[in-house]
Amino acid sequence: MPARSKRPSKNKDLAGYEPDFLLGLYRDMLRTRALDSRIEALYKQGKLVAGCYSSRGQEGCSVGSTAAMRDDDIVGPMIRNLGSMLRHGLPMKFVLSNYLGRATGPTKGRDGSSHFGSLEHNVFGPISMLGALIPVCAGAALSFQMRGEDRVALTWIGDGGSNVGDFHEGLNFAGVLKLPLVLILENNKWAYSTPIEYQTAAKDFACRAEGYGIASDTVDGNDIIAVYEVTKKAVERARNGDGPTLIEADTMRMRGHAIHDDAKYVPKEQLEYWETRDPVETFRARLKKAKLLDDDGHDSIMAAVKQELETATDEATAMPLPTGDRDTELGDVYA
């Protein structure tokens, strides 16, 4: 095991879960990976110009945590939480249309990649400045508290992003007010080219919760069931009025920071090690072992995912491009 990686969780028995739920998780990881790969391909074909920040290797963390949320809960995905967007109900076509800069997409070409939200789907969009979504999602949680709604807000941050002031202020604020907020810190070992020992002298990231007097947990971020369970526990705590939780998920960024980055600074053995812990492959093995999935079953899910992806790609590509009408642009600056 390379330095900076923790041991994998001992896979829990899948008994006690509805097969449809488990297969749904698997399907959403496949959807995420398929869409992620399609975005990468479209970029390489010169068909989109948006920043491509791959979610590869982190699908389990996004899908598993979001699966613990109700539809009316707010999720605030960061750039590597494509799985969260899909799991919380954003159609693939909708997501792709933003990457493709289409006029009828969620930002009408005004912002790229996954930089958008949808109030209709209870998704808050990020900005490029990492950590900003933490106090903003705390604000969503504050509105739930003020209105007596039993909703919860979930957002994510990385090992790098956790060093900005927004992280500290947001968690401290949420702690003081016991806000229904869950923050998953995906420790994916690299913030662009900077390894975690250049980010913090602390022994880990979860220990920061103690400084805010809030609950914390750590989890194998590549074990989708473990992520689901730890998030569910935190969400229940939040819904019961017991305040926020910081969860550190141990995972690995399997691509460069963005598509242009070949990530040569990442040791080869670290990538090879984490390849053996791929969230999709390991979960497939568990489903097979539990006799919940066979090759035919996998093929049929995969066929449906491919169909969905092709349709989404066709439909998103067919959407109109922005015209650059200046009055329209000026007219949409203010509500």
């Binding site: 106090p135 903003v136 705390a138 604000g139 949680a141 504050l142 003020m146 202020e169 947001g170 604020f173």
Partner: peptide
């Protein structure tokens, strides 16, 4: 309280919480 909310000394949190709640209609 919390409608009249004494906050920690945190301008980022004050702004962020305002934004997050405002997007949901507060």
């Amino acid at each position: 309280r919390p409608r009249i909310l004494d906050t920690p000394l945190s301008e980022i949190a004050i702004m962020g919480a305002s934004i997050g709640s405002a997007m949901l209609g507060m």
